[in-house]
Design a protein around this nucleic acid. Structure first.
Lengths: 235, 235
DNA sequence: CAACTTTCGAGAGCACCGCTCTTGACACAT
DNA sequence: ATGTGTCAAGAGCGGTGCTCTCGAAAGTTG
């Protein structure tokens, strides 16, 4: 699998840089990430790092796809561990995986879902793929539940025309059989879920308001499960 | 109202600093906020600013309370413009006010609800007051609706003991008559609302996914209104 | 009015940052 | 053995937060 020794050495160094950058990111946050500090930990002068990483933004991009990948893996793994026919629990497992990863890696979570880093624009061609894994896992649950006839169609007014068109585009792009109302609802669930997680990770609740935040989160999950149209216990 | 000329001049300069800092924050984001740049715009050498603001973090704190205040004003004003007995519309007005302010002031919204600025901890004694205005406005709607007998009590399992105690503490602190289940539900609504707004402000939906994001948001609001236990049309 | 005190801006300086350019050494392929 | 390409090192530019000292101006007091 390895090419020339040069390529092997280069790959090794690239891996080291990402690893060091990840640890800096986790301990000090994105704004404090500095190529000079990475170079120091790498045991090399600062300018040498530019041989491998074009700029600080480039390193940020590497860390973004790295984080998306790890979150996506955690989510996929959590969902896969649930019986294939228990869609409500799959949803809960996904939510708990996101929350767990966010609390474990607050700086990396912030990099993905917090304020955009000023002056940095993630290159879409490299980040959209890894970046959509979670929402894709989410609508995949919806789609499976729909096909298993386990999803209650949300009632409500018909969507306005513009939104309806967007939703049809999404359905088409991913070949979804679930109707637009389901897609719309699950997009909203997606936003609500990350709202709950972000509030907790970013400390919006305050330090002492909730002694057991996981209980609050479980309540949130339960509400979202019902909102999703997944009967809580379909035994 | 003005004291000595010195105090007047000092207050004037402080105001200028906050104003300049706000404009820098709005145009370049929190991480790009620099005291030196503020000093330049103020027409003064950098060290002179330290006579007025102890540190960069101090300036950030000033801008945080400034932003909380403006958001709180916008929300209060929007809610007050709705008929006193239309609680569902008050909720929607609050949501639209938050979204509108966030989209108008993305960098300042990010400062309040995005990633915590690394190494910066907002001093609780100066920020909790302004920072809780929105959630207080939210539960105030719930409380008024409850007292007007316009709130449907959410059904569900009883809360776990730890959460129940926290909710009782909240009820006691603000003298709420609405039961704990209502408080719990509205805290969840709070998180969901900001999840929706944050996704839009931070661009999580992608640039081209939704052609009319406000339609998506209105749908979200409608779901949250129903979740709140506010009958959509109680005519 | 004169003397004293307080306040403030200016400037220099420290250590850090991202980033660029040049230089010299080394490993590799021919 | 002779090129060729890759690499680290170092100097340097302009930027940052922050501290210190110094002199001038303003306000206060006798």
């Amino acid at each position: 699998m390895a090419g020339t020794p040069r390529e092997r050495a280069r790959e090794q160094t690239m891996g080291d840089i990402v690893r060091i950058g990840r640890s800096h990111l986790a301990s000090q946050g994105a704004a404090a990430l500095s190529l000079r500090a990475v170079a120091r930990d790498l045991g090399v002068v600062s300018s040498a790092v530019y041989r491998y990483v074009k700029s600080r933004d480039e390193l940020l991009t590497l860390l973004v796809v790295d984080a998306y990948g790890e979150l996506g893996d955690a989510v996929d793994q959590a969902v896969a561990a649930v019986p294939a026919d228990d869609f409500a629990e799959q949803f809960r497992a996904l939510g708990r995986a996101v929350r767990g990863w966010g609390l474990r890696e607050p700086a990396r979570y912030a990099l993905l879902f917090g304020s955009p880093v000023p002056g940095y624009q993630a290159p879409a061609e490299r980040t959209t793929g890894p970046g959509t894994r979670v929402v894709l896992a989410l609508v995949a649950i919806a789609e499976r539940a729909w096909q298993a006839d386990s999803l209650v169609l949300p009632v409500g007014r018909p969507e306005p025309e513009g939104l309806a068109r967007d939703l049809e585009a999404i359905r088409g792009e991913f070949g979804l059989k679930a109707p637009a109302a389901v897609v719309s609802r699950w997009v909203q669930l997606w936003a609500s879920l990350f709202g709950a997680v972000s509030f907790e990770v970013f400390g919006q609740y305050g330090p002492d308001t909730f002694s057991r935040p996981e209980e609050l989160f479980e309540g949130q999950l339960q509400v979202l499960v019902e909102l999703a149209g997944l009967a809580p216990n379909r035994s």
